[in-house]
Simulated scan of single mutants.
Amino acid sequence: MLDALTLDQMRTFVTVVDSGSFRAAASKLYRVQSGVSVAIGNLEAQLGVLLFDRSGHRPVLTPEGRVLLSNARDILLRVDALRAKARGLGEGLELELPICVDTLFPIQQVGLAITRVRATYPSVTFRVAIEPLGGPLLALKEKRCTLAIMVGEDFRDPRITFEALCSVAQVAVVAAEHPLARQDISHNIGVMDLADHLQVVLSDPSEVSKGRDFGVLSPQTCRVSTQDAKHGLILAGVGWGRLPLWLVARDLSEGRLVRLETSSLGRKGEIVSEAYLAHRLDEPMGPAARKLAEVLAELSSGSDHIPTT
């Protein structure tokens, strides 16, 4: 009867194929060779087909054995996945891990970390939100995410703990054809020079920074809701603004953007902020969240700054 099939028999079948002989399979399974032979014989009797041709020095799969091998492998894979998922649930493994990432932090870095976490916990699904300024902090406060990556020192809360990851550089840039790029930059560009031109500014969609501006020097502004929109408008020559160096490194090297040498926005128009991994003190992290935190720390430990390429 097919109902009498066991996982042990199927695992023995696959091990014989992979090992090349009953003797090698017995060694791998820590059994005597006769036990392996009995298991395969019982499996063949229950299936009603011969799996191996035993007439030669080594067992050779029969046509029926080749067909059924893929089914056996598939069943064992699914069972192993079921066991792993059950083991993770027993450890309190998260079914879903929601995270919120500051727009200043490269999402590729987060993607690398998620890929490595999934190698350990393949059953966990991820939900990633990208938000500027106070968005990640608000997501934590409202429990919309378990972990957040925040950049800078402007947003703090006593219920949130922070672990430094790396530095993120922002530079003041303008399109190569913009008037600011064509003026003499041998001298430091002053506030009045910048104020004569429109500044592209990222707005905070949350109420966390209501009534506050960050690095706004021009009375002429174009406010946008995403970093990509800010990047695109500056590239189009609409105005000037600050963008993360990792985002504009290629544009600068290929001449599409020009750095603005202005001490009004940091030395040579550059400021460096710390990126932090944040989570709520009153919400313990599960295994996947802890692993993600560990991997992000490892990825960031190789350099003090986010790579610019």
Rank of each mutant, 00 (worst) to 15 (best):
D102M: 08
V168I: 12
R87L: 07
A181R: 04
P132L: 05
H187I: 15
D193K: 01
L104C: 11
R182I: 09
L194Q: 00
Q199F: 07
L97D: 05
D184T: 10
L89D: 13
D74P: 05
P98H: 13
A139F: 07
A113K: 04
E91T: 07
A172S: 15
T115P: 06
A172Y: 02
I185Y: 09
R127M: 12
E153I: 13
L140T: 02
V208Q: 08
A172E: 05
S167H: 00
D154C: 15
S123P: 03
D196L: 11
I185F: 11
V173A: 05
E153G: 09
V117Y: 00
A175K: 04
P179S: 06
P132R: 04
Q199T: 10
L68W: 08
S70G: 11
V171R: 02
G152C: 14
R83D: 05
S203G: 15
A139G: 03
T161L: 13
A181Q: 08
E177S: 14
F162Y: 14
L69S: 05
R159M: 14
R156P: 09
T125Y: 07
L138A: 12
P136T: 05
L82K: 14
R78T: 09
H178M: 04
D157W: 01
R182F: 04
S167G: 05
V171S: 09
V173K: 00
A119R: 12
E153N: 13
P106N: 03
A176K: 15
A175I: 09
V117R: 03
